[in-house]
Amino acid sequence: MVYNSIRPGQVWLDTEGKRIQAHGGSLLYEDGYYYWYGENKEKTTGKDSIWHWGVRCYRSSDLYNWEDMGVIIEPNTEDKRSSLHPTACMDRPHIIYNQVTKKYVCWLKIMTIDGPQTETVLTADHLLGPYKIVREGIKPLGMSAGDFDLAVAPDDKAYYYFERVHSETICADLTDDYTDVTGYYSTHFPHPLPPYVREATAHFVRKGRHYIITSGTTGYYPNPSEVAVGDSWHGPYTVLGNPHVDDSSETSFHSQISSVFKVPGKKDLYIACADRWLPNRMDVLYKDCERACSLYADPDTATNAEKQKELKALAEKIPFRESLGIGVDTSVADYVWLPLKFTEPDKTHPQGQVLIEWKDKWCIEDYE
């Protein structure tokens, strides 16, 4: 099938007619091609304990039709202790290029259900690999580190934005080789507990201003996004609110943004790249997740029969294990790519607004 538009939420096939498997993904532009890479979920059917099958990459000249370039970071099927073993919860690969070392540097989030979340760092001489692990089991700044983004400044200094698990957002300076943190960092958006803690951090720069889009913490069940803006890499950031206008479900159009891509050659086209992780569970609404979290956090729930009854009913609607991606088929997850819209500052919105409007389909050519 040949595409001539982007169709958010619909099945997206590669040039061989197979589902695109680049979840929690990001885009790079190099030598006239767009490269889209992400978690390869082709074997994550929920029937066993396989969480990923490495990192897969696709190439396109038009952002519509994608050629499968293969698995660029292979799973380690031999060593169950490896962070690349298929049963390890590897999420959200991010790759940046170091102009000084001439290396591509990839960071991976490695999640455990009960223990700390860590990072694995790999490097390669070429975007498509092969990649070699240079650091594993990192707890950046001694913290349990969740969803993140990487960004490189014009002066080649790099930054690492991550969720300090169930606490706050951290912006940390990276070392010159981009494989570790220096120790200098700033903190943002503190919250006491899920679902209000921010995750799925996506950073981008527009007209010298820094934007961060995040989601709340409700696992694979989507929730309202939040956009914030600041004047420097470390902020401070001012929260602008939920960019998804006319989204009565409060689920960011049933998706979670993983990255924002500025399209080269276009005057002001930024694409919010999101996953619809559970397309078959769009009946789950944020208000139920929010209420369940509040009941979990409420110490009175343990002795209040009515609250226990309500929590049990909610747990049947929004199973906890399913929210974590356990036992669900994410090989059929879809993508929701939508353009960002920017408004100028006014009395009501002194910082301006960032908006994401629903479109059944849209074309790159419609933008300057």
Rank of each mutant, 00 (worst) to 15 (best):
W12L: 14
D14G: 00
T15F: 05
K18Y: 08
A22D: 05
G25R: 02
G25I: 00
S26G: 15
W36R: 14
Y37Q: 12
Y37D: 12
K43H: 08
G46E: 01
W53A: 08
G54A: 04
V55D: 06
R59T: 06
R59Q: 13
Y64F: 10
E67F: 02
M69V: 07
K80E: 14
K80W: 11
H85S: 10
T87G: 01
R92Q: 14
I96N: 06
I96E: 03
Y97G: 07
N98F: 03
V105E: 10
V105H: 05
I110R: 01
M111F: 09
I113K: 13
P116G: 08
P116N: 11
Q117E: 12
T120S: 13
T123N: 06
A124C: 08
D125A: 01
L127M: 12
P130I: 13
K132Q: 14
I133V: 15
P140F: 05
M143H: 14
G146S: 11
F148N: 06
A151F: 11
A153D: 15
D156L: 03
V165I: 10
H166T: 14
D173K: 15
D177S: 13
V181R: 00
V181P: 01
G183L: 02
T187I: 14
T187L: 05
F189H: 08
P192V: 04
P195E: 05
V197E: 07
A202S: 15
V205E: 08
Y211S: 02
T214M: 12
T214L: 08
T217H: 11
P222T: 03
N223E: 10
G230D: 10
D231H: 05
D231L: 09
H234Y: 02
H234R: 05
N242E: 13
P243M: 08
D246N: 15
S249K: 12
T251S: 15
I257M: 14
S258V: 00
S259C: 11
K262Y: 06
K262V: 05
L269I: 06
Y270K: 08
I271Q: 04
I271Y: 04
C273Q: 04
W277G: 01
N280T: 12
V284N: 00
V284L: 04
D288P: 12
C289P: 07
A292Y: 03
L295D: 07
Y296V: 12
P299W: 03
T301E: 07
A302F: 00
N304F: 04
Q308L: 11
E310L: 10
L311F: 10
I318V: 14
P319M: 07
P319G: 06
R321S: 01
S323N: 03
S323V: 00
V332G: 01
T343I: 11
E344F: 00
Q351W: 13
Q351Y: 14
V354D: 01
E357F: 07
I364Q: 11
